[in-house]
Simulated scan of single mutants.
Amino acid sequence: MQNSKKLRNWLDAFGLDHPLVIAGPCSAETQEQVLAIAHQLKDTDASVLRAGIWKPRTRPGNFEGVGALGLKWLQEAKDQTGMMTTTEVANTNHVDLALKHDIDILWIGARTTVSPFVVQEIADALQGTDKTVLIKNPVNPDLALWLGAVERFYSANIQNLGVIHRGFSTYEKTKYRNNPEWQIPIDLQNQFPDLPLILDPSHIAGRRDIIFELCQTALDLNYDGLMVETHFDPDSAWSDAKQQITPQTLDKMTVDLRIRKKGDDKVEFNNELSKLRAQIDVIDDKIVQMMGKRMNIADNIGVLKKDHNVAILQVKRWNEILGRMILAGEHNKLSEEFVLRLYKAIHQESIGHQKKVFKET
């Protein structure tokens, strides 16, 4: 990676000139596997070795982790390579075992973050320790739940905190396994500007071919680190095979990723401009996606109107939309002229879609 901003808070202790990289297999499978991956990662930009020990699967019957035995493998990998270690903890027993095996960083998984009761129990179990805790976003797009989990650990006097953005579940089919919903972590950082933010591109992507672009977007948005699932033989992995990459691919990826340098006013300006433009790109992509969904609904309305021999243009409905959107525009500091131009264009596109439906036999 190219030079980066100085990382905040506990990340400064790493002494890195690039964002933090956490890497390792989705699941610890065997002692040989964990050690082999650790040795392949030790000369890359990765500073922390990750491995799932307990795997909370959506449905029973899938591989659910090797359990506490894998903590010894992580401990041995740490002794041999000098890398720090991290794993997910989902209850107080996991916390106790992780502390006994000197795991450096504990992360709270998306399924755990949704339960304030469990989060509080884990926070209480960690009170008084100097361990670093990373909190993944909840499964569903709920900023309040994510913020609540952060606040519970703050209240337990956990000083070394960070969050992991791993995307959000949706019933709609998209190119992602979990929709990134970039605006939600941006909103979280607005409330906790000093809280380190780490991207988990593996769980957002669900497949390895778009991991790089997700990482680049995260760095453009000023994220502090990446957690990337790596395996020496991804296709043979016991869990989440499609979303893992090799340590060699990770090494090349971190070289290719670009972060603007800081040092003078011009560079600082460009960094801020890049960050703001990346936010606009995310929103623009979402606008186009939502427009596509709107036109799909317009198509369905066209079918319904055709079946019932109802005219395409409904003036009363159109005037209601305009009035409502003009008021909404005023609330969001948009001029009436802009709202009218925008919605006339949207309405025209919608009419075009319905005309096409009417022409179909």
Rank of each mutant, 00 (worst) to 15 (best):
A278G: 03
R258S: 11
L226H: 05
I346A: 13
R207M: 12
L145Q: 14
N178V: 00
A144Q: 14
A23E: 05
T249D: 15
L126T: 02
V66G: 08
S274T: 14
I186A: 09
A311H: 10
S350A: 15
D281K: 15
T174V: 06
H18E: 13
V118Y: 01
G70D: 05
F338D: 12
Q183R: 09
R260L: 15
S47L: 08
W318H: 10
K42Q: 15
P141N: 06
P25N: 07
I158F: 01
I287N: 03
G329A: 07
E29C: 00
E330N: 14
V89S: 02
K6P: 03
D43G: 02
R59A: 15
I184S: 01
D299V: 09
I301W: 04
I53L: 10
M291H: 11
H101L: 07
K131C: 09
A77W: 10
L16V: 04
E336K: 13
G70C: 10
I210F: 08
E151Y: 05
G162D: 01
P180D: 07
N270D: 14
W238G: 00
I204Q: 10
L69M: 11
L161G: 08
A205F: 10
K6L: 05
A156V: 07
V139T: 14
M295N: 10
L69W: 00
N178G: 02
L49G: 00
Q31A: 12
H165I: 04
I287D: 04
L71K: 06
D102W: 00
E121P: 00
R111T: 12
R258H: 12
